[in-house]
Structure formats: C-alpha cells, structure tokens
C-alpha cells in the first residue's frame, strides 16, 4: 500500500480457525486485499502468535481446541500488548447468548457463519481504516 509515495508496511491480521478450509479462505480474502495474514489452527497457537507479532487485528473462530475464542479474547484483553487490538469473532455459534458472550469477553465485532467473505473484508477495512 502506498501513501504519497512512501511505502507503508501492510497491516498484519491474525486469523485463527481449526477448520483449515475456512482458515485458508479467510486468509486468501484478506491477503488479496493487501493484508499480511498470520495463520493459527488453535487457540494456543493464536495466543502465541498474537503476543509475538502483535498484529493490527485478529479474526478468531470461537469453537477451537485448546483455547476457545472467548477465552482467547479475554486473555488478549488482559495483556498490555494486545489489550486494544481489534478482535472480530467469526463463528458458527450464532445464538443471542453467544453474541453477548463475545462482546462480554471483549470482542469488537461478531460475524456469524454462514458469512460473506466480502462482508468480512469490509468490516476489517472499516476497523483498520479508522486507525
């Protein structure tokens, strides 16, 4: 991405989902839009990557092994390095109580599956555009 001739580094997005098909689709969509994507297959890997690389945004599944999306969000909020990192939960858990739990845990946005990849990109752009 360029801005007045000066090359800015691409924003880094962390994507976590234990379903590889979905992970790759999300990664492809975001990479195509000019983001660098870090991939994680479970909650613990996602936490490690987030603390190491301090991405600009995270797109997290909820139902993941080892550490679920809600708990992961809480942990990220508890760490200084990631406490203000925007978090979008992308998940099949779609009941009202689940959405509430997501926001209670500290997520910024909640996208239900089935989802539209375009919409995901739009929301990511909206959040990162504000920064």
């Amino acid at each position: 991405m360029t801005d007045g001739g000066v090359d800015r580094p691409q924003p880094v997005v962390l994507a976590a989902d234990d379903d590889e098909d979905i992970l790759e689709l999300v990664a492809f969509r975001l990479e195509r839009s000019g983001y660098t994507v870090l991939r994680a297959k479970d909650g613990e890997e996602a936490l490690r990557l987030a603390l190491e690389a301090k991405p600009d945004l995270a797109v997290l599944d909820v139902m993941m092994p080892k550490l679920d999306g809600y708990e992961l969000t809480r942990r990220l909020r508890a760490e200084d390095a990631t406490s203000r990192m925007p978090i979008i939960l992308l998940t099949a858990r779609a009941q009202d109580a689940d959405v509430q739990a997501g926001f209670d845990a500290g997520a910024d946005d909640y996208l239900r599956k089935p989802f539209s990849p375009q919409e995901l990109r739009a929301r990511v752009q909206a959040i990162l555009g504000r920064r």
């Binding site: 098909d21 979905i22 099949a92 989802f115 539209s116 990849p117 375009q118 919409e119």
Partner: peptide, 15 residues
C-alpha cells in the same frame, strides 16, 4: 466435496 463444505459456511455471491 470442498465446494459443498464451503457452501455451508459462505453466503451471498460466493454461494
């Protein structure tokens, strides 16, 4: 099978 799986998780033009 791959596409069948994706059709369950995506909406809209993708589907």
């Amino acid at each position: 099978e791959l596409l069948g799986g994706y059709s369950l998780v995506v909406r809209g033009a993708s589907r």
